[in-house]
Amino acid sequence: MSDLNTAMTERYRSSFLKEVEANVEEGEWVKMCMQCGVCAGSCPLGNAWEHTPQKLFMMIRAGKREAVLSSDAMWMCTSCYNCIARCPRGLPITHIMHGLAHYAKRLGLSPKNQPTQQFAQIFWDNLMKKGRVNELKLGLSMYFKDGFGQGIKNAMANQKLGQNMMKAKRMSAMELFGGHSIKDTSGLQKMIKKAQEIEDAKIQGNS
């Protein structure tokens, strides 16, 4: 994907704002931000982020491409929609944040070891296999994402919780073997693949 990144950098050399407009979902709204800071003040996780939406939008206008796309901010959004509800200019801020995350991921610029970003990838991979999320496998994948030793430690730490869930029939060990799937898994996979092709073509066309 770094080829795409190079191509995009080349194409939008003069304006990162224009690049965002063309390629990021709801990106055409970024120019309408009036820098009031209400989003930044409304975000329940604001102080856990590298950049608030207000800052991100300012950085986009200032052409800080690398800093924006490698920021962890978009990945920390919990979609609480506080910012959208409060933005006096009506910007779909949550959607812009997710759009930015997507675009960064596509260009291969998203922060590598950022946990929520990793979780998003694991979740996606898990979902794509059977068309629905296998919670047991998803949990285990998260435990072992940082290696086998760490995985065992994580599993031991949550042992009690797991046992209780099994007792309450909230989780089944049988899910480890195959697990449930939707009726037409390959149909879904084809559909997603087609969607990806369309999206890629659009982005490639812009590059």
């Binding site: 704002l17 120019k31 009036m34 820098q35 300012m58 206008r61 200032a62």
Partner: peptide
């Protein structure tokens, strides 16, 4: 803003 005037 709609005409892409940058406000900094």
């Amino acid at each position: 803003q709609e005409k892409m005037v940058t406000f900094s």
